[in-house]
Amino acid sequence: MSNPLFSLRGVVKRFHDREVLNLDRLDLEAGVITAVEGPNGAGKTTLLAILALLTPPDKGRLFFDGQEIPRAASQLTAWRRQITLVAQQAYLFDTSVEKNVAYGLRLRGLEQTKRDARVREALEQVGLAGFGARRARRLSGGEMQRVALARALVLRPRALLLDEPFANLDPTSSQVFERVLGDLPNQGCTVVLVSHAREQAHRLAQRVVSLREGRLTPGLDRG
């Protein structure tokens, strides 16, 4: 494998003395869609939380683009700004769609004209053009997930992490997710998705990684 964006070495995570993840070695190649599959409790969501730099591993080292991620929480913001996570049931702020999508850009201090253009573009990308002024919380479940996707895409992240992106989606939203995700590797974005929807995950992903009880199952690694 050439040029991994994420590299995990000896990563172990425990919750209340129970080992939920133990990865000796895992490399996730840049510009590739990797699907992580496994039964409930396999450690998939924990892996995403570690990759999103939300949960530090108890042991082991995590590299991003060849550089080791520091342990100090105060130093993580610059790294997090290159990685974005769309949760299974994404939380939308209690404000308009536009303000939700613009949130990350505001944090990065992008000037308003550029911000507005990027927000419009992202909303168009997910088929929600004209939804900007609507209250985010009043949308349907599928539309809310699409807002969350637009909020991530607008940041043009180097890595996009998705937890069960196809769960509870209506057919239209599901198609939008598939179309948008399929196009991301062409833009150099690395995608890691955790999914129970095997068929969709296998169709989209160039590589499939299997987790069982927190460990990689080498025989099932496809890609």
Binding site: L54, R80, T84, A87, Y103
Partner: peptide
């Protein structure tokens, strides 16, 4: 409980994430 982590994944500092919680 998702407010803070959501803000962090969108690039907030810990202070900005706390501010997001307060706003919500």
């Amino acid at each position: 409980s998702r407010v803070g982590p959501t803000a962090l994944t969108l690039g907030a500092t810990r202070f900005q994430a706390a501010w997001a919680v307060l706003k919500e």
